[in-house]
Simulated scan of single mutants.
Amino acid sequence: MFELRRLRLLHELALRGTIADVARELSYSPSTVSQQLALLEREADVALLEPDGRRVRLTAQGRMLAAHAARALELDEAARAELSISRDARAPVRVAVMPTAAEALVPAALTLLAEREPGLRLEMVEMPPEEGLFELRAHAFDLVVAEQYPGYTRELQPGIERTLLGRDPVRLVVPPGSPARELADLRDAAWAMEPQGAAVRQWAVQQCRAAGFEPDVRFEATDLTAHARLAAAGHAAAMLPDLSWTGDRSSVRLLQLPGDPVREIFAATRSSSRDGAAVGAVLTALADALAAHRPR
């Protein structure tokens, strides 16, 4: 019989690639991880790891068992969810959210949950969608709030389900004194965008190219409030979704982008935990919070 905690370590190694990363994520020492994986090898009676320079990698048998480990963890999670419903005891719901959701959705969702599910405990970490979706597969979170832009669909992963929370218009933001009337008028402007590698950065650059110019990106920030303030101060143009506004928008001018694009806000969950009552309550509260969001 395989020990589930050791299977979790193998699963983490398959995702993260190194024993050091597994140890860091699960708050173990690297030697403890190595010892537990060695015990798992004895249980399996086959070699699961092999040297790869100064590191190790999974053998073919190791990859096979890691796939079974992922399914075993899903079954364990599903069983615990059903048992918690039957005894009315709920574990905390761990949520990873992108910055705009942390500011505009989570506070409102918590207010709704306090009324609807006063015994539910929600724990939140703010992180980019790319990281959150990876950590969801590693069982670090129960739910991830992420987004995708037109033409930039995120990779679909087995065992991960998505629930559309709503759609969020994206608009062109310019300084109050800017004479610009459309995107093509901003070919000589300085731009504020998210850092390289973010899906929204790629999407925004493509919008500029479709308008006939390469954007002069002078300012990079993951905090969209910084983009708005740079525009309000007259230093940059930006493309911002409505959800990024938690306060007054009168300090900038908003223009429509070609095609009136909207981004999709979705929640990702593991198939094994989606039907749990606590996760379902959080999904509903987030969707209701997004529907009620009205920037001024």
Rank of each mutant, 00 (worst) to 15 (best):
Thr18Glu: 10
Asp21His: 11
Arg24Phe: 05
Tyr28Cys: 03
Tyr28Met: 10
Ser29Leu: 06
Ser29Cys: 03
Thr32Ser: 14
Gln35Asp: 10
Leu39Asp: 14
Ala44Ile: 07
Asp45His: 12
Leu48Met: 07
Leu49Gly: 03
Pro51Gly: 02
Gly53Met: 04
Arg55Gly: 13
Leu58Tyr: 05
Ala60Leu: 11
Ala67Asp: 14
Ala67Gln: 14
Ala70Arg: 14
Ala72Trp: 07
Leu75Thr: 12
Glu77His: 09
Glu77Ile: 02
Ala79Gly: 07
Arg80Ser: 09
Leu83Pro: 00
Leu83Glu: 14
Ser84Val: 00
Ile85Glu: 15
Ala89Thr: 12
Val95Trp: 01
Val97Asp: 01
Met98His: 10
Ala101His: 05
Ala104Gly: 06
Ala104Phe: 03
Leu105Ile: 07
Pro107Gln: 10
Thr111Ala: 15
Ala114Asp: 12
Glu117Gly: 02
Met127His: 03
Pro128Thr: 00
Pro128Asn: 05
Pro129Trp: 02
Gly132Asp: 00
Phe134Gly: 13
Leu136Glu: 04
Tyr149Gly: 03
Tyr152Asp: 13
Thr153Ala: 15
Glu155Arg: 15
Gly159His: 05
Gly177Met: 07
Glu182Ser: 10
Ala189Asn: 02
Ala190Trp: 03
Trp191Leu: 03
Glu194Thr: 09
Ala221Met: 11
Ala221Phe: 09
Ala221Asn: 15
Ala228Asp: 12
Ala232Arg: 13
His235Leu: 15
Ala237Val: 07
Met239Ala: 11
Met239Asp: 08
Ser244Cys: 13
Ser251Glu: 15
Gln256Leu: 11
Gly259Tyr: 08
Ala267Ser: 01
Ala267Gln: 00
Ala268Ile: 00
Thr269Leu: 01
Ser272Asp: 04
Ser272Met: 02
Asp275Met: 03
Asp275Pro: 01
Val279Asn: 05
Ala291Glu: 12
His293Gln: 09
Arg294Asn: 13
